[in-house]
Amino acid sequence: MIRALLIWVLLATPVLALDPAELLDDPVLEDRAREISKGLRCPVCQNESIDESNATVAQDLRALVRERLLAGDSNTEVVEFVVARYGEYVLLNPQTTGANLALWLAGPAMLLLGAGMAVVYIRRRDTQPKDQSDGLSAEEAERLSKILDD
């Protein structure tokens, strides 16, 4: 939350992120520019997209994105253009190639593993012979076992 701090400290005079003057006249292109900007990280900020950032470099990047769009690039081409210059660090949505597959697959893999274990556990509880303490409630059984233990 306090990620906005650094940039504010770095800046002598605050500028509004995404100044009205930066907007493109063509609303379709502008929408695409916003879409792209939201997925690109401001290189000097903490976890902030260039769309939200006040930093000068973010402003430059916003201008660059719009420039490429005006030149007729597709969304993917614009992103590739920026990544080629600033590295994959600027991608807020990490790539799915190489070792990053582990990141993307960790959740589903863990879910499968956990679900497997849960199913085994539940089945075992289901097929176990009848609870011998059925006549007693859990608490009564507990009190009994405590008395017996001591």
Binding site: R41, Y89, N93, P94
Partner: peptide
């Protein structure tokens, strides 16, 4: 598992930098 996903996503930039020699970001998307 939800917590695990948040955890992996949070520390992944650190893991990538230490072991994969890649500086990358894991953001809201």
């Amino acid at each position: 598992v939800g917590c695990f996903v948040v955890f992996i996503g949070t520390i992944w930039p650190l893991v990538a930098e230490l072991f994969l020699d890649r500086t990358l970001s894991v953001g809201p998307p």
